[in-house]
Amino acid sequence: MTYLDTWEEFAAASESLYQSDAVNFRFVWKYRHSDGKLIAKATNNKVCLKYRTDQIQDVKKLEKLSSTLMRLMVSK
């Protein structure tokens, strides 16, 4: 389990993780309103990448990464 320091790093690593093993890959985000925390996780059951934030601007980045991943999942 690795917490990455920047979102850019996390997004790039998630995308390449998806490319390497598309079938086992999943992307999860957890939102905890009471603590004001958002944790995003990308894993293929072997490698696990995580990113933790309490910043509102990261929501937009999460949205962008989600739609990129979803587009990758339905394409091909």
Partner: peptide, 18 residues
Amino acid sequence: FEETRNKNSLFVTIKRYD
């Protein structure tokens, strides 16, 4: 979203499905 307003967390997962 409303249920998790005061306590607990909300998890959303996306994955490829064939």
